[in-house]
């Protein structure tokens, strides 16, 4: 059964159609990739999936519930974990603090948040001495790992990642993709948005977006 389902989704930006009549299903335990050229609406689709914006028409279902009827803050903070292209971490916080903050915002209950955050950061490949560093003192790859750890911290069913390997070297790309594959195997629904054929090749399923022209 699909944990997330797009039903006839259309989206226009200033009367310009960006997405039209999209219907995708995403299931738990699978790694999905949404590919498309620049301007095809990949980031718009990610914004719709992450609850940052609402479709012009159509319905998004989360666990068979209309996302429009779920509080958008609750949806974003509890049900879905987003890894943004530019990571969007709080730069004045340390890696550990960023992860704990996400748990606080989600109202996630655990005996020891710090311990859980440290374990998560370790699982995504961040060294222990790097967890207390401020974000700006970390490399792009390390920031990417912190962003993934943050997205996982409150145990959401769905992980969304926008161009997760776009700024990384090939070796780090492989490591990050390995993390996503591992998460899918753990039962998460992982949706990647990328224009890279390599990333698409490593996913279970791919959806291709094409740029809408005036004729369509």
């Amino acid at each position: 059964m699909a944990i997330l389902s797009l039903q006839n989704i259309s989206f226009s930006y200033d009367k310009t159609p960006v997405l039209k009549d999209i219907s995708y299903d995403f299931e738990k335990g699978k790694l999905y990739c949404i590919v498309g050229k620049s301007g095809a609406g990949k980031t718009t689709l990610l914004s719709l999936l992450s609850g940052l914006t609402t479709p012009s028409s159509g319905t998004i279902l989360y666990d068979d519930k209309d996302v429009a009827k779920i509080d958008k803050y609750t949806f974003r903070s509890k049900y879905i974990g987003v890894v943004f292209q530019s990571y969007n971490l709080i730069t004045k916080y340390t890696a550990l603090e960023n992860v704990i903050l996400a748990m606080d915002v989600a109202g996630y209950k655990t005996d020891n948040k710090k311990q859980k955050a440290l374990e998560l950061l370790k699982s995504v490949g961040l060294d222990e001495d790097e967890t207390d560093r401020r974000i700006l003192k970390l490399s792009g790859g390390q920031q990417q790992r912190v962003a993934i750890a943050r997205a996982l911290s409150y145990d959401p069913d769905i992980i969304l990642a926008d161009e997760p390997t776009g700024n990384l070297d090939r070796e780090t790309q492989s490591e990050i993709m390995a993390i996503f594959r591992s998460l899918a195997k753990q039962g998460k629904c992982v949706i990647l948005v990328s224009h890279s054929p390599d990333v698409a090749a490593m996913c279970d399923e791919c959806y291709k977006l094409t740029k809408l022209t005036k004729k369509s």
Partner: peptide
């Protein structure tokens, strides 16, 4: 930007 990140994370 910080406000944007916090609200995107789901902070009211």
């Amino acid at each position: 930007y910080e406000v944007g990140v916090l609200t995107a994370m789901g902070m009211k």
